[in-house]
Deep mutational scan, measured.
Amino acid sequence: NARWTTEEQLLAVQAIRKYGRDFQAISDVIGNKSVVQVKNFFVNYRRRFNIDEVLQEWEAEHGK
């Protein structure tokens, strides 16, 4: 399903906090979204969920 429920959106943001840009890991956490759908989520929801800021926090924690 290409549509993202609110629950899936929140799950994705939590997974980004945990896995950074590991699209496969994020896809696995959500369970019903492909890697391509996760990559599209990054692009389409970047502003709404401040994904750049979430990634900066992840990179700071993981030394990337």
Rank of each mutant, 00 (worst) to 15 (best):
N1M: 08
A2G: 09
A2V: 10
R3L: 09
R3G: 12
R3W: 05
R3C: 10
W4A: 05
W4Q: 04
W4Y: 00
W4R: 00
W4V: 00
T5N: 13
T5Y: 04
T5V: 00
T5L: 03
T6I: 08
E7S: 10
E7L: 10
E7C: 05
E7F: 06
E7K: 10
E7W: 04
E8L: 02
Q9F: 05
Q9E: 09
Q9R: 08
Q9K: 10
L10P: 01
L10I: 09
L10Q: 14
L10V: 10
L11T: 10
L11E: 08
A12V: 08
A12I: 05
V13W: 04
V13T: 03
V13Q: 08
Q14T: 11
Q14D: 14
Q14M: 09
Q14L: 05
Q14V: 08
A15G: 07
A15P: 01
I16R: 01
I16L: 10
I16E: 02
I16T: 07
R17A: 06
R17T: 07
K18E: 09
K18R: 12
Y19R: 04
G20M: 00
G20P: 01
G20S: 01
R21W: 06
R21I: 09
D22I: 00
D22P: 01
D22E: 05
D22G: 02
D22T: 04
D22R: 03
Q24M: 09
Q24H: 05
Q24G: 06
Q24Y: 04
A25V: 03
A25T: 14
I26S: 03
I26F: 10
S27P: 02
S27W: 04
D28N: 11
D28Y: 15
D28S: 11
D28A: 11
V29L: 13
V29A: 14
V29K: 04
V29D: 06
V29Q: 10
I30V: 04
G31R: 10
G31E: 08
G31F: 00
N32G: 09
N32Y: 05
N32Q: 08
N32R: 05
N32S: 13
K33A: 02
K33Y: 03
K33Q: 00
K33T: 00
V36R: 13
V36T: 14
V36C: 11
Q37A: 10
Q37Y: 00
Q37I: 01
Q37R: 01
Q37P: 02
V38T: 01
V38F: 01
V38Y: 01
V38R: 01
V38W: 03
V38D: 03
V38P: 01
V38C: 02
K39W: 01
K39S: 08
N40Q: 14
F41E: 00
F41H: 01
F41L: 02
F41R: 02
F42G: 03
F42C: 07
F42I: 11
F42H: 05
V43A: 13
V43Q: 14
V43F: 07
V43N: 05
V43C: 07
N44D: 13
N44Q: 12
N44Y: 03
R46P: 04
R46G: 15
R46I: 07
R47L: 14
R47I: 13
R47Q: 15
R48T: 14
R48M: 14
R48L: 12
R48P: 09
R48I: 15
R48N: 12
F49D: 10
F49V: 11
F49G: 06
N50Y: 05
I51A: 09
I51S: 05
I51D: 08
I51T: 07
D52Q: 05
D52K: 06
D52F: 05
D52H: 04
D52P: 09
E53K: 14
E53S: 12
E53N: 11
V54T: 06
V54L: 15
L55S: 05
Q56I: 09
W58S: 06
W58L: 08
W58I: 08
W58F: 05
A60L: 11
A60W: 06
E61D: 04
E61G: 11
H62I: 10
H62Q: 14
K64A: 15
K64P: 08
K64C: 03
